[in-house]
Design a protein around this nucleic acid. Structure first.
Lengths: 129, 129
DNA sequence: GCTTGACCTTCCATCTACTGGAACCCTTAT
DNA sequence: ATAAGGGTTCCAGTAGATGGAAGGTCAAGC
């Protein structure tokens, strides 16, 4: 299977697949013409990576998850630890963004948005209050 | 005022202040010894930038907001447009993260987290279901 | 006058996770 | 023969800093 077909079937751009090979997440063999030749197993790994990335896992997390996935002697606690830490980071990030949103929403709501220069948004940023 | 004091008073790391000068957000004059010499106005600009960044505005947004801040003939609609677009991006990002969180939370909740290899998190990532 | 330590300077590398593009090779159809 | 549509490598760039090396400056203390 050439990279184009793998890209179609995995949903990942060919560029990204090459990048994943570059950083050692997949190791497709090569044909005589230097083309990458993916099997079903590599395709499956890439799909796994795509889903993990879609859940926001970092590349290093993905590497760890993949290693665990392929380790028949894994402990589910190791998987859960990675996912739990990621969940905590997401919660933290959502909290940060929510606070930004609340502040911003109030400021935007108070701004007349007309041709006059007076603006509570700029007033807030300039340190008033 | 040297960069150290400005860093303390603005809350921004000296490195960041140098970076902001590098990309043209501030232009402190120099003393004979090449040290940056910040006045109250530069300090104020940096504090403005710090608050805008804390609200998640991009550097380019900050540049625009700063320009508007210093333009006495600005229209508040221009400010509101930048802030509104940013607010929409934040809302979108929160929605994305919330969806990740919901999925992850369910998966983590279902994972035994013990010494056994069976794991719904890996099962999901591998495409089961 | 000399050293010590806390400043300051520039410049280069690194981080995340790709993405774009140039220059070039391979295959197949016409 | 050539053109289209694959594939290849390699280099640069994105955002927003941050770390560190190598070296200049300044004030205090001996």
């Amino acid at each position: 299977m050439n990279i184009g077909e793998v890209a179609r079937r995995s949903g990942l751009p060919a560029k990204t697949i090459r990048y994943y090979e570059d950083i050692g997440l997949v190791r497709p063999p090569r044909d005589a013409n230097d083309y990458r030749n993916f099997g079903e197993e590599e395709l499956h790994r890439l799909a796994f990576l795509g889903r993990a990335r879609a859940l926001g896992f970092s590349i290093e997390d993905c590497r760890g998850l993949m290693r665990l996935y392929e380790d028949r002697d894994r402990a589910s606690s190791d998987v859960k630890r990675i996912a739990g830490a990621h969940l905590a980071r997401i919660d933290k990030r959502i909290a940060e963004l929510s606070e930004m949103r609340n502040t911003l929403r109030d400021l935007v709501r108070c701004c007349a948005g007309d041709a006059r220069p007076d603006c509570p948004i700029l007033a807030d940023l300039s340190g008033a209050g």
